[in-house]
Design a protein around this nucleic acid. Structure first.
Lengths: 253, 253
DNA sequence: CAGTGGTCTAGACCACTCT
DNA sequence: GAGTGGTCTAGACCACTGT
């Protein structure tokens, strides 16, 4: 039994959410009602609710009410990028997914001053101008991920990658045509709270962490041809990988 | 310029942290001092500080003060598990790491009632009793990760895996000896706020998300021999993968 | 319009840490 | 003992949503 009143209030509400008494998208009693129900001041009720919002369990809508948040997720599979084989497609049924209907995206293309995190991986000096494609992907109008890719200018010069259009045959195909086939990649995943800018672009609610997924793409010669920075709201995704031990014969399919 | 006073206070402090004026582990002025400095009530100061704590930027120590949090991270490489080859070891220099000195762990071994998330992946009925090894790993006394593995009972019966000891030759070697070589794995990574229990076991500060990393291990015949549930505090880790396109010759080394 | 959540104040008491 | 952050109250005004 927690000592603080606001913790006790939070514990009761948390339990109701976890046992299903309060289901996804259910509306909680108003703060005034909770004040009388728990016999505490409104400040204490709000302290309890703020805690649950920061745990990602609740969302509040000014003028409307406070609601239980949804927990459905999209499947995010970095390996689709290189077209690697999937070892265990049957493993997919483990995950509680969300239908991915009505996809859309906004694309913003052009040279940018390279952020230092990208510069380190791209192997250029910080402040260098590089080519970039910056996308926000949506499903049913809801932002799904930020997907910013950066290329050395000589690699993409004169290609479709410099144009603000969807590339049907895939960016990788264009890179192959230019003689820069991407055959290996390094993934880095950072868990952190979103910046203010990211929170706005992704319509992220308070109490939601993001995964920052950096992909550094290499040619067979070891040259870096692309760095991608994906930002995924943690409450809307599950990130999956499939791995196979080398030399077992499974890696070919 | 944000409208709310507490947001303005938070914005000023956030800027000082980001530009380095306030460095890691620096102590902030007391709440009383901030009250006079910004000419707002203490409640408003506390509201601003609470926001920054929930963003993972600050930590508070009762009776002592409020401090800027550290940002160093450990490298977490799921692929070490299967002994896969690393495509780009030179890519490691990108990451700002923390020295991993003085490792220690606590191990708790024995049969447990299988949680439903694990049961789904292990292919057993929820509520089945399975073998488990539950570890908390530490560096310099600081909790580093929760590492709970679950095995079908027939797979590990009579092996060292049932004993609460570190297995020097590796759990995988023991599985091979039993005829259950793990040759493939499915990784799932969920980003979420820690449960109360996890927060206590890992000494997680408010405003820290965790990565829940599930690994489902398969034999060549497709049998699941192990499910691992790792919990990593987001502020102390970077998760890395290395990938190689199949058939390029790089996958062998 | 009434109801909702968002913000803010002033003041109080507590447990804890450090000197 | 002085200073710190943690908790709590009572009351006020605001912007916004819905009817």
């Amino acid at each position: 039994m927690p000592a603080a009143k606001h913790e006790r209030v939070a514990a009761v509400l948390r339990a109701k959410i976890e046992n299903g008494e309060l289901d996804e998208d259910d509306k909680l009693p108003s703060e005034a009602d909770l004040t009388t129900e728990f016999d505490v001041s409104r400040t204490t009720v709000r302290q309890a609710l703020a805690g649950l919002v920061n745990e990602g369990l609740l969302r509040s809508e000014p003028g409307v009410g406070t609601f239980v948040r949804s927990r459905r997720r999209h499947v995010y599979r970095p390996q689709d990028d290189l077209g690697e084989t999937v070892a265990n497609p049957q493993a997919d049924h483990f995950i509680r997914t969300e239908a991915e209907h009505d996809p859309s995206q906004t694309i913003d293309v052009g040279p940018v001053t390279c952020p230092s995190v990208i510069a380190t991986r791209l192997g250029v000096e910080p402040g260098t101008v590089v080519a970039s494609r910056r996308r926000v992907r949506r499903f049913a109008g809801v932002p799904y991920s930020i997907n910013d890719s950066y290329y050395p200018r000589d690699v993409v010069q004169g290609t479709q990658i410099e144009e603000p259009l969807d590339i049907a045959r895939g960016v990788n195909t264009v890179l192959v045509e230019r003689g820069f086939e991407q055959v290996a990649a390094r993934d880095e995943i950072y868990i952190q709270m979103p910046s203010k800018d990211e929170a706005e672009r992704l319509a992220i609610l308070p109490g939601t962490a993001v995964a920052v997924h950096l992909v550094t793409g290499f040619t067979a010669e070891g040259r870096v041809v692309r760095v991608v920075r994906n930002v995924l709201p943690g409450d809307r995704h599950v990130i999956t990988f499939d791995r196979v031990k080398a030399g077992t014969g499974l890696d070919a399919g």
